[in-house]
Design a protein around this nucleic acid. Structure first.
Length: 441
RNA sequence: GCGAAUGUAGCUCAGUUGGUUAGAGCGCCGGUUUGUGGUACCGGAGGUCGCGGGUUCGGAUCCCGUCAUUCGCCCCA
């Protein structure tokens, strides 16, 4: 043992392993599949950007920008920031990389994000999100498509029944501004009776008073001005088209007039998929329309919408998952068998069949490990087999066994639908020899 | 950033009012005729009691600090 002290992992980071890592991978794989169904283009984005990319788009006074960013000066003295979200970076690329030519552009990505927050279950300093954006589309159908995609993702993950879609509209810029003015005036009039947090919010982000959990605020929130009274005709119409589009797509939702977004760039549609199964971290996927964002980065007015979903939170809802099945456990006994096993392993994997070598301990141990690994077939190559010029194949589920001549095993056998076969005539499947296990023993 | 709880073996936890070499279950490794998954039995490895100070003849146990995790607030995916 060395006397060197082992460095500890960084607070709020995770080393994900085993069934949880499988659940994480399942979420990402499902997202990739759904994303292709909806024809979103895959993009890869840098993990860090100039700090202004985030400070200008998210809003200087938001918590994310003012106290949660991992910002640092690089060796050239430039302020850089580890991305706390995807949207700003994608909007930046839309402007700097000429992606306007592809508008309306549908893109998707996933990866790590960084926020300096107090860690909790489902909340980490390095966390991971799925992300989908449509840039350059003013139509409400874009919002609908994003929501339909999110809804299908949750269904394919098998977690849709515990999750509800909460939907709201923040109106266009005019609606939002007049509503905000009315809200500020209203809360100003009862300021002294609000919670300390909400008095603070009144200065920085008054909309967020609406989803305060403090009982002192809730009475006033109920009587606060409603966005519906401030919607312009166009905003009203836009929201109507979104909701009727959701009906057509068969996406269930509930209206939540108090739902607002924390970041400044949102307009019109705002939504969250929430669950009560993750404690305080109930939002599993959230997003909306951000028509103002591209302008804040110096581009021309560009309508856009998108969402992001926490992979860790989705993975927790999915639950633990097993590693994919092991189709063949290759079990050699003895030196000669080892070299045959090496050939079989290479060949089997080239068939596209998963295989793993078990060559530690006595045969009993090897069988046990193969069973623990969930092997379907055990391919046993021992001294008895080699003496007869065969290999023994055991069905680990039924316990039935049979042998295949070693020469055939190495040169002629193929896998077909999980079975061992020899194709006598490639053009005549009827001529196949299929090996079947004997009675269980 | 605020409030609270927890931290003993790989995992889940015991450990009495401070008192010799810190325990259990599960898991892991090996064995019970050196060729077959289970059960049973036998044996074994594995812990600076999160870390650092303090009080004490003596600290896993009491006090302080610190780190980490968890729960709530805040924020957000």
């Amino acid at each position: 043992m060395s006397n060197v002290e082992t460095p500890r992992p960084i607070r709020g980071t995770q080393d994900i392993f085993g069934p949880e890592a499988e659940a994480f991978a399942f979420v990402v794989e499902t997202f990739e599949r759904v994303r292709k169904l909806y024809r979103f283009r895959r993009v890869e984005m840098p993990v860090f950007e100039k700090t202004e990319v985030f400070s200008r788009s998210l809003g200087e006074t938001t918590d994310v920008v003012s106290k949660e960013m991992y910002s640092f000066d690089d060796r050239g003295g430039e302020s850089l920031t580890l991305r706390p979200e995807f949207t700003a970076g994608i909007a930046r690329a839309y402007l700097t990389d000429g992606w306007q030519q592809y508008a309306p552009l549908k893109v998707a990505t996933h990866g790590p994000l960084f926020r300096y927050e107090r860690p909790q279950k489902g909340r980490y300093r390095q966390f991971h999100q799925l992300d989908a954006e449509i840039i350059g589309a003013a139509e409400p159908q874009a919002d609908v498509e994003l929501l339909a995609m999110a809804d299908q993702l949750l269904k394919e993950l098998g977690i849709a029944d515990g999750v509800t879609l909460q939907l709201n509209t923040l109106g266009d810029a005019d609606s939002r501004d007049s509503w905000r003015v009315a809200l500020v005036a209203y809360f100003q009039s009862v300021r002294a009776d609000l919670s300390e947090d909400s008095q603070e919010r009144l200065e920085r982000n008054p909309l967020r008073i609406l989803d305060s959990k403090d009982p002192r605020d809730k009475a006033f929130v109920a009587d606060a001005p409603k966005i519906d009274d401030f919607l312009t005709d166009q905003a009203q119409d836009f929201f109507g088209q979104v909701t009727s589009g959701l009906e057509a797509a068969g996406v269930a939702w509930t209206r939540l007039p108090a739902l607002v977004r924390g970041l400044d760039y949102y307009r019109h549609t705002a939504f969250e998929f929430v669950t009560d199964r993750l404690g305080a971290q109930g939002t599993v996927l959230g997003g909306g329309r951000y028509d103002g964002l591209i302008e804040s980065l110096g581009g021309v007015h560009t309508p856009a919408a998108g969402w992001a979903a926490g992979i860790e939170r989705l993975a927790m809802l999915v639950g633990e998952r097993r590693q994919s099945v092991l189709e063949q456990a290759i079990i050699p006994v003895g030196e000669e068998a080892e070299s045959i096993a090496a050939q079989l392993l290479a060949k089997t994997r080239r068939w596209g069949t998963s295989a793993e070598l078990f060559n530690r301990g006595n045969l009993k141990k090897r069988m046990q490990r193969a069973a623990d690994a969930g092997a379907f077939w055990a391919v046993i190559i021992g001294e008895d087999e080699l003496a007869k010029g065969v290999v023994t194949i055991r069905n680990m589920h039924s316990g039935g066994q049979f042998t295949i001549p070693l020469d055939d095993m190495l040169n002629r056998v193929e896998m077909d639908d999980g079975r061992f076969v020899i194709r006598d005539d490639p053009n005549n499947p009827v001529g196949w020899t299929v090996f079947e296990p004997a009675e269980s023993q």
